[in-house]
C-alpha cells in the first residue's frame, strides 16, 4: 500500500470516493460522514465482533469508533486510506474496552475468557439482537474450532490474524492500525499462524 490515499479508494465504483466524502465531512457536512458510516460499518462491526465475540458490545464499540472518527476528522490528513485510519480508531476503542474489562494480559489469554460458546448476545447495553442468521454456521464445527483457536491467542496475535487473513490488509496497513513496526507485524503474524496450525491440527 502506498502512503498516499488513492482517489478511487473506498467507493467500490459506486458514488463519491472516500476522499471526497471525507473532505466534505471535514467541512462540516454530516451527511457525507453518514455515507462513510454506511459504507464502512460492515467491516468495522465484523472486525470488532471477531475480536471480542460479543455482538451487543461490538455494536456499541463500533458506534464509538465512528463517533471518535467524526471528532478526530480535522486531524485526518489523507496520507493513509480512510478505512485504515478508521480501523486504527477501532483498534484503540477495542483495546480501551478490553483494558476496562481486564482482559488484556502479557501472554496468552485464559482460554475460557473468549470462548465462542460464551457469546452473550442478549446484553442489556444494546437493542435485543436476534440470533444472527449466520449463527447457523456455529453448527459448522470447523468454524467453531477456528473461533476457539483464535480466542486462545493474545489480543495482538488475534488481531493481526484477523486483519491479515480476514480483512486482507497489507503489512504496512496492519502496522499503521496497530501502531507498531512492520517487523513486529511479521513476528506476531507468523507466531499466531504457527500457534493456530498447532491448535487446528486435524
Amino acid at each position: 500500500m502506498g502512503a498516499v490515499a488513492s482517489e478511487s479508494a473506498g467507493n467500490g465504483g459506486d458514488g463519491p470516493t472516500d476522499q471526497v466524502l471525507v473532505q466534505r465531512a471535514q467541512s462540516g457536512d454530516y451527511r457525507a460522514f453518514d455515507q462513510l458510516v454506511t459504507r464502512h460499518r460492515g467491516k468495522v462491526y465484523a472486525m470488532i465482533v471477531n475480536m471480542i465475540h460479543n455482538d451487543a458490545d461490538a455494536w456499541d464499540l463500533a458506534q464509538d469508533a465512528f463517533v471518535k472518527a467524526w471528532k478526530a476528522l480535522p486531524k485526518f490528513e489523507h496520507r493513509a486510506q480512510f478505512s485504515t485510519w478508521l480501523f486504527r480508531i477501532s483498534h484503540n476503542v477495542v483495546y480501551d474496552w478490553m483494558r476496562k474489562k481486564k482482559v488484556m494480559s502479557e501472554g496468552e489469554l485464559d482460554d475460557q475468557m473468549l470462548d465462542s460458546s460464551r457469546i452473550d448476545s442478549a446484553a442489556p447495553t444494546a437493542p435485543k439482537i436476534p440470533a444472527r442468521p449466520d449463527e447457523q454456521l456455529v453448527q459448522n464445527e470447523r468454524r467453531a474450532e477456528i473461533e476457539k483457536a483464535l480466542s486462545q491467542l493474545s489480543d495482538e496475535h488475534r488481531e493481526t490474524i484477523l486483519l491479515r487473513e480476514v480483512q486482507g490488509m497489507e503489512y504496512t496497513e496492519i502496522a499503521d492500525i496497530m501502531e507498531c513496526s512492520k517487523g513486529t507485524v511479521m513476528s506476531r503474524l507468523f507466531y499466531a499462524r504457527k500457534k493456530l496450525q498447532t491448535l487446528l491440527k486435524p
Binding site: 460499518r41 460492515g42 467491516k43 462491526y45 465484523a46 465482533v49 471477531n50 455482538d55 461490538a58 455494536w59 463500533a62 437493542p127 439482537i129 436476534p130 444472527r132 449466520d134 454456521l137 459448522n140 470447523r142 468454524r143 477456528i146 473461533e147 484477523l162 480476514v166 480483512q167 486482507g168
Partner: peptide, 9 residues
C-alpha cells in the same frame, strides 16, 4: 469461516 464484513443489526 469468518466474515470480513457484517452489517450491524
Amino acid at each position: 469461516a469468518l466474515p470480513s464484513e457484517q452489517e450491524p443489526p
